[in-house]
Nucleic acid binder design. Structure first.
Lengths: 252, 252
DNA sequence: TACAATTTGTCCGTATGTATC
DNA sequence: TGATACATACGGACAAATTGT
């Protein structure tokens, strides 16, 4: 690793109050270089990288160091490794589901701190999902409408004995029904965090019934293309849910 | 790896397990175990982990394997490592800025695919930021108002010779002015991606002047607490910006 | 200023598991 | 069945960085 151009990394926030990273380790330089090439499209998805030994030689580092760089990229879902002949390290296909997972997990950490309150999540959802309901009502095709209806109809108690893995949360389905992946990316992690934090045992059955009724009503508005009604119904629904969360749910 | 029963330890070959399709490598098991403990709060932020050798022995793996596990966690910003005496591996403080970075980088990958269009980002922003402008106008205190005004006044040409690192993008500042971190978390990665994708050389000076004028107008609405005006002005501004982006900016 | 102690960083050599042909 | 090519894992050694004496 002869070249280390930015001796002091500029622009990076001085978050580590006490410690300054004075040198970038070689494994990080290699990882950064490869990440840059992947993000720039120089290494498109599906590309097979050289094996670990060659990769190390190409960067002037040992195989172990190249390995650690690959660990970094693989943990960020930028590459995948496979063993065996015809195996190796491949640039990953971008996967929205993984992004949602990662963001959700990061939010899970933040939501335990005083920096991010549950009320912030509820407010963000209140901004996002009524608008999503409107868009869904304006755009959903027959197939999407069917999916939304199914999600609303799906009974939400978990006593269901059959496998039934196809069930997606209603709010998730509605976000996807907008046809705008970015809305799913923003809204879904919030829903994930809220769902895992809610103490469901504190909510009574008739309240769940009301939730289900709201879902079905929204689904019908979407199906009939009534954008205004869908948006308003979703807003009412979320306001009601917020009361539920604030009354019962959280440990912070 | 004692805690994971079906682990394939290198020396002994557990041939009896026929269903084991996917063996998780040892470094991944170690990383997952540590991550679980961090997310559960068993290892609070600031905790110093044992050094790499001891950590390896504690998990029944070699130091190299323990290191690779730490690389995974460190690349997810869950731990930080430092060299030297008094160095070591420490559980990280949750950092919203890093989350924004990570999401932005993930979006950068997705935005190159047919799954996520630039128009999706623009639409999401059009949902989010007018609402943010409204909230900012309703809530901003004197200090925040000052920050928003400064961001709007900051001249945006990069010829500025002095260091001037305090300058934050106006849209970023406005998101933060809502006091809701979640809105920043959702909106900022979008802005980052859009900013890096825009071909700025295709935009003329008088258009930048108009952008700046819009920013100052919004800032004044926020400062005076005119929520409706702030929201409307931001919406108009974004619609105009969208035209700019769609006319000039992208390579996809 | 020099030196020692501690910890991560880097390298090498070797062996083994795994998947494909 | 065996050969091949790759990732995975180990253990030891030394280098570099940081802090305290």
């Amino acid at each position: 690793m002869p070249p280390q151009p930015p001796a002091a990394t500029p622009g990076t926030a001085p978050v580590a109050h006490l410690r300054v990273q004075r040198v970038r380790p070689a494994y990080r330089q290699v990882a950064d270089e490869l990440r840059t090439q992947i993000l720039a499209g120089t290494l498109p998805a599906g590309t097979r990288l050289p094996n670990e030994g060659e990769l190390g030689r190409a960067f002037g580092v040992s195989r172990s160091t190249a390995r650690e760089a690959l660990r970094v990229l693989s943990s960020q879902h930028l590459v995948e490794t496979h063993r065996g002949v015809q195996g190796g390290t491949f640039v990953s296909e971008p996967d929205p589901a993984r992004v949602v997972e990662d963001v959700g997990s990061a939010l899970g950490v933040l939501v335990m701190t005083p920096q991010l309150h549950v009320s912030d999540l509820l407010e963000a959802r209140l901004l996002l999902e009524p608008a999503a309901a409107r868009l869904a009502a304006q755009r959903a095709d027959a197939e999407t409408v069917e999916a939304v209806r199914n999600a609303a109809a799906a009974h939400r108690d978990a006593r269901d004995p059959s496998g039934f893995v196809g069930h997606l949360d209603f709010h998730t389905t509605l976000l996807m029904a907008t046809g705008n992946l970015m809305l799913t990316l923003m809204g879904q992690p919030v829903n994930d965090v809220l769902r895992t934090r809610l103490r469901r045992e504190g909510v009574e059955a008739h309240e769940w019934d009301k939730v289900d009724a709201c879902h079905r009503e929204i689904a019908e508005h979407v199906a009939e293309g009534r954008a205004d009604d869908a948006e308003a119904a979703m807003r009412d629904h979320l306001v009601e849910l917020r009361g539920l969360y604030e009354r019962e749910g959280f440990w912070t």
